[in-house]
Amino acid sequence: MTRQPARILIADDHELLRDMLVRRLNEEPDLAVVAAIGDADAAVREALDARPDLVLLDIDMPGVSVFEAVRRMREGLPEARVIFLSAYVQDGFISQALEVRASGYLTKGHKPEHLIACIRRVLRGGTCYSPEVERRLELGAGGVRLAQRPRSRLELLTARERQVLGYLAQGLSKKEIARLDGASVKTVDHHCQHIMEKLDLHDRVELARYAIREGLVAV
């Protein structure tokens, strides 16, 4: 039995681009464009009517904010997946896309093949964020969010790892550190390995220089 093609709604106010996307996506046997719209209000109405599996939305469109449009769509179509398209990589857009749990945020300018690959990944339950968007994301206590500020590699170390790094920088052996720390040599060994991995530094001299630079030990 042939599987039904996935139903896609495209909303983009750039007519030339929208028509191109319709033609290109319809060439794929597993995809079918069920509606192509030029503004966000109509996109909500059409989505509730056509009930697509996936909605492709340009962020900068006339009408209601696209993020609000997604919220309205979700009231009647909770399972529909959403991919945003935008010429901009703006923090405000990214955080709103995360708030509405968008499956993708792609910057315009990629080849159509890239978009098609993303659509398929999202239809399988994955996500597809452009690398330049993904680099701005961080894991917070409440889930994935927009990075608040650039973070130092030192923040990757746990409190004990920082302590062990300080000892290493002072020239202590693993045995001495284990005695000071009240831990087994094996545990200290694990700490050392993890510190090196996290900091991407692979000898004691580099570690010592790093620790001094970060103020973990006095010179």
Partner: peptide, 10 residues
């Protein structure tokens, strides 16, 4: 290997 949040996805 413990990673404390917040930390960059990358």
């Amino acid at each position: 290997l413990v990673l404390e949040r917040p930390l960059a996805l990358a």
